[in-house]
Simulated scan of single mutants.
Amino acid sequence: MEYVQERVTTLHALRDRTPEAPTDRAAVVVPMTEREFGGLAVERVLGALETVDPARVVVPLRASPGRVGPVREWLREFDLSTEILWCDGPRLERLLADHGLDGQRGKGRDVWVGLGPALSEEYVVVHDADTLSYSPAYVARLLFPLAHGYAFSKGYYARVEDGRLYGRLFRLLFRPLVRALADAHDDPVIDYLASFRYALAGEFAATSDLVADLRVQRGWGLEIGTLGDAFEHGGFEGSAQVDLGRYEHDHRSVGGPTGLADMSDAVVDATLRILLDRGVGIDHDALADRYVAAARDLVRSYAMDASFNGFEFDRNAELEQVDTYADAIGPPAADDRLPPWRDSPITVADLREAAAADLREVATADYREVAEE
């Protein structure tokens, strides 16, 4: 049985146990899109949260106007103190634009919207809504280190399904990228990033003090950008990672507008932004070469691990992904991170007022449509 420690405190699920944790002092942020509405995964997540009974559940919702009403009514069926924030609402969008906070939209922007209201609680937990294997124990496990003096807690898990290794963006991009950075640069944040067993996991918890200092990446760089700020405000001593077991959720293709190739650009950008913030100069061409070499070595190891377990493994497909991800390595784009809520030009009250007005307007429109029918 494995229980090796990393440089960040690593908590292992050596038995099926839900530890005592301050769930009643925590807000759980669950970003959701209309695509997940009514699905088995989100049903499981929300049903499990009913048994957890956190202080509040904040749902930043990305949806078209016609879907907001049905989603809102469906969420009311769960015995939870739920706050819905329609991320596409016109008043909310205008509020952000008026204060220079408009721009690229994505998961990170949605989470940032949800983090503001969540700060009213002592602790904040963030996790995805598409987890088929979700357990009520996850929230307590993520919160446990925070109740014992840590400021930041990250989930990790095995991405194994149907006799195959998943977690491709982490395995084939992030891990070898960090290894390539470590080969040429001596900065403690690289060791910090390398300490997390699944750095791209969407599940984390933090004190509201730390969350208020997060500069949130707007898109798929959210998870890595969060680690960079967690290092600055919590460091090795204030950070932990928690075993959440095996995880099952949606898989993405490599190509396409929301595929892994597009996500790789954001992951690389967020990773190199962390180094740029710390004044580390990078030769990007040399980094790309070192990355490819490190990734190819890891593919060989993954192939052996898969064979050992009797899993399917397409070595050529994995190597093709490595070549695709190598194209993403270059200087970070312009910094468009959202500001920490501690320094935000809008208040949480402003955001809540705009979001509530948008929901009232949608409810009125829904009523009109029903009356007209």
Rank of each mutant, 00 (worst) to 15 (best):
R141Q: 06
L276R: 13
P22Q: 01
L119R: 01
A180K: 00
G38H: 01
T271I: 11
L40P: 15
G47N: 14
F37G: 01
L200V: 07
A326Y: 11
A317P: 01
E77Y: 04
F231V: 00
Y156Q: 06
S133L: 02
G310N: 06
C87P: 02
S264K: 09
L338S: 01
H249I: 11
L14R: 13
A201S: 14
D191R: 03
Y157W: 13
R17V: 11
R159F: 10
L173Y: 01
S239P: 12
R342Q: 10
V189E: 00
I274V: 13
A205C: 07
L181T: 03
Y134F: 15
A201R: 04
V139M: 02
G225T: 06
R337K: 07
P60C: 04
D102K: 07
G330K: 10
A365F: 03
A118M: 05
A41L: 08
T18H: 08
R296K: 12
E312Q: 14
P70C: 01
L200K: 09
A355C: 11
V322N: 03
T82G: 05
V58G: 00
A354C: 07
I190K: 00
T347D: 08
A212L: 10
M263D: 07
D110P: 04
P136D: 12
A180M: 03
D183G: 15
L11Q: 10
S239N: 09
G100C: 04
L177A: 09
D358H: 07
R300K: 15
R25D: 09
E203R: 07
L210Y: 00
A151K: 08
A48I: 07
F311Y: 15
R56L: 10
F37N: 04
V242I: 00
L95I: 06
A356E: 12
R296S: 06
E361C: 08
G163K: 03
A357N: 09
V111Y: 02
G108H: 02
D297F: 07
T33N: 12
L276C: 13
L96M: 05
R7T: 13
V71A: 13
D250P: 05
D289F: 08
L132I: 13
S301W: 03
F144G: 02
A180E: 03
A13I: 10
Y123K: 02
I274M: 10
R76T: 09
H99V: 05
L46H: 00
Y198K: 08
V42K: 00
E232V: 04
A266V: 11
G228P: 03
L272H: 01
R35H: 14
D130C: 10
D16W: 13
A266Q: 14
R91Y: 09
G256C: 12
V125D: 01
Y123C: 03
V362E: 03
V4W: 15
M304N: 15
R300V: 15
D162G: 15
Y198E: 05
S253R: 12
S120H: 14
E373Y: 14
L101G: 00
R94K: 12
E312G: 15
E248M: 13
G106N: 04
A371S: 14
V160M: 07
H148R: 10
V58A: 02
A26E: 06
R25L: 12
L85W: 01
Q5L: 04
I84V: 15
D110F: 08
V189G: 00
S239D: 06
A180G: 11
E161L: 12
D250G: 14
L275W: 05
T226C: 01
D289H: 11
T33G: 13
I282R: 02
V267K: 05
A317G: 14
